[in-house]
Design a protein around this nucleic acid. Structure first.
Lengths: 223, 223, 223, 223
DNA sequence: TATGAATGAGCCTTCATTCAT
DNA sequence: AATGAATGAAGGCTCATTCAT
């Protein structure tokens, strides 16, 4: 479910097969994501996924054990794109934990904005997954939040954030990012994505930043 | 959709009928809520609702036009209990806007805790509703948040909260309350409901309260 | 299923009851006829009949054993109105068999025109009846045609019609009358009822009337 | 809706598929016709059609959009067999319009006799079709009658039939043919099909044929 | 007599899944 | 590897009929 890294330019017979498998799975997941996101898991039929992916129903079953597994794949794909891109964005923010937090939050919001409806899928249809699927999802979600959590931990350790429960603070960041998709219908006419990010960053940081460092992060704290 | 208070009022024939109707609708919604919350809207069959409600399928259709209408009923019921109880709680908090906000937030969290899974239903299966149902839900949701929104408005007007967008601040309150149900599986082992409320209240208020009034609300701002 | 003849002005307790029964049955049949004729037997629910008849479903079952029995009643009612009115019309036509036939045919067409759709019901939903109902219907239908059949018999006996099979000729008369309802959608824009009757009478009579008597019935044979 | 002639033509893959489709549709329509004709449209369940056709319910829906469409298919099939065979029969009758009319009428009666009950279906359950189905049926019915109508037109033009409304005369022919199925229960013990045809042909033609040509068509006019 | 709440069998339809080709 | 025909269980919903009041 990860995209080929391009290293296998010289493909043996197995490599060819692996590449095709990968491509097929990508086709299926892309089709399923599009449809499920638009119509909801239960309203999407295997046939419609097959049509969208331009293959036959039967073939889908060569790559996924069933409809649920496809849902899992779609959700995992979205979560993976968080897991991939957030660390990247945070890296470019440098070493300062507060700046890292702000960058992570921004990246989170931006990815959500790009996958606004796909992001909803995980929440909306998560219950449809079986136990194992739900666990996998939860783990990935946790992994996704790890970089942010670490930055928060650092910030606390360096005394930049005070009176903060790391875990709760992290989840607050995540939920406020997700709110952009959850309440998009309401906010879209009031804020641009950028305004939203700015305001919410300020909201979160002002609540817990060490008063003595406020000046240093002035630009993050004011609108 | 409120239950008869059981007092033996002398009921006319119409009253008896109305009471039965009310009772039947309650039975159906209670059964449906229980099952849908546990299994998700699409996994619950009309037959299973009928079984749970101890009546026949046919009878359900005397009270609800279809399965969707039942979902709407369940969601509306939850939202109504917000609309009923939050103003009550805020009233007992007195006139101070900050105290009113804190009381409203607490009430919100408590009701969510009581209807933890039912609350999820509104988010999870809201998309299943048709346009009219979605509008009804959204309106109720807005109405629910009105008292909080007004208190925030007052607080801003009185200079108690600064640099705040009323609408966004209100939604932040709501989403942080809802997070208790959304991430309950994660938080339950870390916080009691009361701790959660305390911490989140402090988190929210600290971010925007006028620095000069911090002392006055000391008890709300520290853990 | 026949209407009270008014003789029981002084009603004993039984008479009162009989009158009510009659009235109720009339209400039900009238309602059912209206609806079944409009929508077809299977599309009409007992509830809708009850609504139309302004009584409860339960009450209908006091007067009819079931839905089928109502259909039978409706059909029988229509057939009875043929059986009642055709002899009347033929009587006023005097003694001449040809004139009686023409009068009977006219009456038949006119009644059908008045009950255009009800007439269809017998044909359309006749198959729905059980064996006993079908027999009853067929017998009544036969009885309906008796006066015409007798007039045809007379006409043949008097040499007015030649080379005619009485039974077939009679049925030809009936079917050509019924055709007014069967193909009404086609004919309505081409003929008035009166034109239709005139043309079809001429058509039928010309085919079999004794050439020597043609002059006598000139007005019936030309358009 | 025509059956493959069984010749082992080399079929491309598309041909095989088309043949199967044709065969399946035939199976379904044959089963449906049999059952609907016997029990009436509304008493036949999709399951019973599937059983009779020896396939699963689901498969039926690959070939027909719903139950109504099957009814339409059955009716259309019957009407098509009229549209196919009547012109054939009339062609073999030569150029004389009167002979063509007689041949067309005979063919009509014979096809009705072969599909006696299926023919009833069109009349009995026609109302069940939706607007589009009814229009399609009516158009086909009209098309079916076109050859007869043209022959009648010719006969009138050539002065063979006099004082005749072409349209009405044509419908009279049709209804008298259909009467064979409508009143079969009555006629079967009185006439053979052939007798019926002879008598009705004579009946119809005698009514309108030009007296000067009677001798020429003597064999058609006498029994 | 009259009501209409209640029942539950049965209907049409959909769709995930399988399997012969 | 790939197809899509075929299956059949399950679902939402209707409605004739019954029965307690």
């Amino acid at each position: 479910m990860t995209i080929s890294d391009g290293s296998d330019v010289e493909l043996g017979p197995d490599g060819v097969q692996a590449a095709r498998t990968e491509w097929r799975m990508h086709q299926i997941l892309a089709a399923a994501a599009k449809l499920m996101v638009r119509d909801g898991f239960h309203r999407v039929s295997m046939q419609s996924i097959a049509d969208e992916a331009q293959m036959s129903v039967g073939l889908i079953y060569r790559y996924f054990a069933g409809k649920q597994e496809i849902l899992l794949g779609v959700i995992v794909d979205v979560l993976n794109s968080f897991a991939d891109r957030i660390p990247q964005s945070m890296q470019t923010a440098g070493d300062d934990p507060i700046h890292r937090i702000a960058a992570g939050f921004r990246a989170y919001c931006e990815i959500i904005d790009e996958n606004r409806e796909a992001a909803l899928l995980a929440y909306r249809d998560g219950k449809t997954l079986d136990r194992s699927g739900r666990e996998q999802t939860m783990n990935l979600e946790f992994k996704t939040s790890q970089p942010l959590r670490e930055a928060v931990t650092d910030a606390v350790a360096q005394g930049l954030l005070v009176d903060v429960d790391v875990d709760l603070f992290t989840y607050n960041l995540l939920i406020l990012a997700q709110m952009w998709s959850l309440k998009y219908w309401h906010f879209k006419s009031r804020f641009s994505l950028d305004e939203y990010i700015k305001r919410q960053s300020a909201f979160v940081l002002r609540s817990s930043i060490d008063p003595h460092r406020r000046r240093k992060y002035q630009d993050l704290l004011t609108l």
